[in-house]
């Protein structure tokens, strides 16, 4: 029994079918509980007032925006090295989720920034690099959609993901150098001195768990959809060839 058995599409489908209800359920539970806890039962922060409640959406979305890309990178590498189709399709399935998460992080950030910094948008390094990350997601998705042959598309997008990762990191440092920002430091550090106070920290953790579970559920589900779509295309092609 090894992990690679799940690279078999049929095995992947049956297993994910069994796991999915759990992930959907837990994700819904954590999100509802965390957001209600955060929205109704946490105090206002001294300086930021009620806007601090936005943190329960902003931080998890931003975390996932980055981690979705990392997951795509790993999946692309697995595809390039071991040629497992499920892996390539999982990368494809994850990209739109990552893009939406980036968008949520950007929008909530802008809404939050308006009363706090007095501006919707500031060319702050973190904001700017998220915008650039969003562009990378768009390019990646567009490349997948532009190419008809699925294996060619998987190869090309995988290489783009690798090259894009290097350039995204470079952009991050370039942007840091280019402008000093308004954005506060890490809100999640394990270092007690640095992270946000416990009243905000605990519901935030629940929300993060909810977002991660939702991401896993969505990736599993969408990968299943991609596998079926691929199988359908193959069957239709055979049908046409037979007819």
């Amino acid at each position: 029994m090894s992990l690679w058995e799940y690279a078999n599409p049929r095995k992947f489908l049956t297993t994910s079918e069994r796991l999915l209800p759990w992930f959907w359920g837990l994700a819904g539970l954590c999100l509802v509980a965390g957001l209600i806890w955060g929205f109704f039962f946490t105090p206002d922060e001294a300086r930021q007032g009620a806007t601090v409640k936005i943190i329960y959406l902003h931080v998890p979305a931003a975390m996932l925006a980055i981690n979705a890309w990392i997951m795509m990178l790993v999946a692309s590498l697995i595809w390039l090295v071991r040629r497992h189709h499920v892996s390539a399709l999982a990368a494809r399935a994850a990209a739109p989720i990552g893009a939406v998460m980036t968008l949520i992080a950007l929008i909530t950030g802008a809404i939050w920034g308006q009363p706090m910094w007095g501006t919707w948008w500031e060319w702050d390094p973190r904001l700017t690099s998220f915008l650039i990350l969003f562009l990378f997601y768009l390019g990646y998705i567009a490349l997948w959609q532009a190419i008809d042959n699925p294996d060619t598309a998987a190869d090309l997008t995988s290489v783009l993901c690798l090259v894009g990762t290097v350039f995204a990191l470079l952009s991050r440092y370039a942007v840091n150098f280019w402008n000093q920002g308004l954005h506060q430091g890490a809100s999640l550090s394990l270092d007690k001195e640095e992270h946000v106070a416990n009243v905000f920290y605990l519901p935030l953790l629940v929300c993060i768990a909810g977002f991660i579970l939702l991401f896993v559920a969505l990736v599993l589900y969408r990968t299943g959809t991609e596998i079926r779509a691929r199988r359908m295309a193959a069957l239709l092609a055979r049908e046409r060839a037979g007819a």
Binding site: I132, F136, G139, V163, G164, F167, S171, Y173, A174, W178
Partner: peptide, 17 residues
Amino acid sequence: LLLSLLVLPLYVPTLIF
């Protein structure tokens, strides 16, 4: 158009520096 969408983000570090 796709080419511009793919290439322009890669130009960012060079442009900034």
